[in-house]
């Protein structure tokens, strides 16, 4: 598609265009364009695979994979959803920011390599599953099995964390302001260092989650007992 001249702001009607058409238009818009997607009505895959800096507002509730695969190591779009989203918002995000004004369903930020997923409401089960370097920040509660097998990156939970938090965690770090229902296998509570407090402070500044007291969060990391084969377990194999 030929490149479009930026008109600010661009409005795209999700009832009039297919998701594929919308994403094609988004890809063709010049850097810095402002776009509003109206009437999303729970549609999936909106603003997926957008690598360049756009300011995208989704005007209502949206479906699965919103903003997934977006951005790059050097940045990406800034997406705001004025509503709630379905499964896997920001899946495999590489860069940029996705802000959800409402709640997010399961697997928010799954496998995100970079960028930030901000959920102003609650996140359902498996938030930050297999995180690979991105940031998932939830103002409210996060559901069971959040941070499962997260390899790198940061998860901030402003409310309570459900059962099995950080199960089989690698090197990602989880900060929880509220209660933790239970820790998953190989996850442990660790001492909060000054670096941690600074990291949470900057996340609070970035997200606006000022109900979180950076010095009072619980740090959860990996006990690293599942990393290696241990000779005393030989009999189990």
């Amino acid at each position: 598609m030929e490149s479009l001249t930026a008109v600010h702001p661009v409005t795209l009607d999700c009832e009039a265009l297919s998701v594929r058409e919308i994403n094609r238009v988004l890809r063709a818009l010049p850097d810095g364009s402002e776009v509003r997607l109206v009437a999303p009505r729970g549609r999936h895959n909106l603003a997926v695979g957008i690598e360049h800096p756009l300011s995208i507002t989704i005007d209502g509730n949206a479906g699965y994979f919103i903003g997934g695969l977006g951005g790059s190591r050097t940045g990406g779009p800034s997406i705001t959803v004025d509503g709630f989203v379905g499964w896997s918002v920001g899946e495999n995000l590489m860069g940029g920011t996705i802000r959800i004004r409402g709640s997010a369903s399961q697997s928010a930020g799954a496998s995100a390599c970079g960028g930030t997923i901000v959920v102003e409401g609650d996140a359902s089960l498996r938030a930050g599953i297999s995180l690979k370097g991105g940031t998932v920040a939830v103002a409210g509660d996060a559901g069971a099995m959040s941070g499962f097998m997260a390899q790198a990156g940061t998860i901030l939970i402003g409310g309570n964390a459900g059962a099995g938090l950080g199960d089989s965690l690698y090197e990602a770090v989880i900060y929880v302001a509220g209660r933790i229902d239970s820790l998953g296998a190989d996850a442990r509570v660790e001492e909060l260092t000054e670096d941690d407090v600074d990291a949470v402070k900057s996340l609070v500044a970035q997200t606006g989650f000022d109900h979180i007291a950076p010095g009072d969060v619980t740090r959860v990391g990996s006990a690293r007992q599942l990393y290696h084969f241990r000779s005393e377990h030989h009999g189990a194999y």
Partner: peptide
Amino acid sequence: SEYRALAG
């Protein structure tokens, strides 16, 4: 199963 079925 999905919200989009309820959206109307």
